[in-house]
Design a protein around this nucleic acid. Sequence first.
DNA 1: GAGGCTAATGTCAGCGTCTGACAATTGACA
DNA 2: TGTCAATTGTCAGACGCTGACATTAGCCTC
Lengths: 221, 221
Amino acid sequence: MTTDEAVAATTTPPPAGLRERKKQRTRSALVRSALELFTRQGYERTTVDEIAEAVQVSQRTFFRYFTNKEEVAFASQEAAECHFFAALCGRPADEAPLAALRGAVLDAWGSIGGDIEQLVPPELHMRMYRVIESTPSLLAVHLRRIAEMEERLAREIARREGLDIDTDPRPRLVVAMFGGVIRVAGKLWTEGEEDSVVTLQDLTAFHLDYVGPALAEKWDK
Amino acid sequence: MTTDEAVAATTTPPPAGLRERKKQRTRSALVRSALELFTRQGYERTTVDEIAEAVQVSQRTFFRYFTNKEEVAFASQEAAECHFFAALCGRPADEAPLAALRGAVLDAWGSIGGDIEQLVPPELHMRMYRVIESTPSLLAVHLRRIAEMEERLAREIARREGLDIDTDPRPRLVVAMFGGVIRVAGKLWTEGEEDSVVTLQDLTAFHLDYVGPALAEKWDK
DNA sequence: GAGGCTAATGTCAGCGTCTGACAATTGACA
DNA sequence: TGTCAATTGTCAGACGCTGACATTAGCCTC
């Protein structure tokens, strides 16, 4: 799903058309059933046939909604990432790059529940995150998706600051730093016991503030 | 291959035993044929049967040497990464963490040719790197492998500095920063025209020096 | 150097992911 | 209501990968 589609999905209350509504329902049902199965019995041990059967749909139909088995596993992640990116775009223009990124990620996690609970229960979303982190093949895809997001973030930072991303390395560097910190915090959170989002926020803020000042200094040089 | 095995492979000139030599030859032939096919016609468009047939071996035998199709694609990368990690371990103990990482990566790239040319021609290794970067499924695995390497680097940095990696966030943070810079430099190099290793070294050094001082300051606090 | 032992390989059957092609169904709209 | 187009189901098949079992071939002892 692109950002545009995500925005459209939230700003169009009555999608109109029975055909379209049916499609949305099928898609949602596939996502929910898939995440339920993945979190219960593991990603590898769940077959596409199982997911399709749980929704009373043929396997072929599943592959018309999702290009592959991985894609359905990241459905709620996709929504969360759109949420985060939108938060960054809504940041005041006078904020420094790292401050804007920091504010966006903390805000996004704070208000994540309301945005994706239409798709899946937030609790399921969180459990699925752990499955992703602990399943090698999913972790690999997750890291690639993060890399793609970082590219978009760098372009947005460059736009905000009026820089040319092809000649100035700073947008990509600050985003790479930011991404590194986020991943360290996320990993520590996954390994820890606490499940709450607040813990994740605190952990992230702590690590960001640890390297933040040094990066901010360098930025202005 | 582990670091120990890599060291053993380079310090044991006569592997002795006809059986063992035959296995090594088969393995090398599989790697070379695979990389040749991948770089010529693309990773996705190359089947395991093709690779096996090129070496006159059954498909089943291929899967006894490599757990999956991806693994053979990263065979020369594996060697290069062992080379880099060994370079880090050989760094003087009084060097600061980022300086050691910087020195290790520049040294490793400088002497990469001699180490992996026993396996594949260096030129083929470089072409394969581009295939990895431009093939989504391989890029995903590549990023996961980098993440694993970063974990090992963080532990080595912690060991050098006498820090506890479970309580002090600095080893992981400095490595995450370093990894981010490396990836930015690598990506720019891949997108550029220049093929030479020297260009990659210059690009990396430039970007590292850009953020290096800021990180070094923070490290001592 | 003949024979037994064991590691390496080949063969075969089968599961799971994913795709193309074509037929059947079902909502949309005149 | 009937036509049109979108959605779905069915089927066949390619490809990645694995277990089981038979076969080959290096190794080691007597």
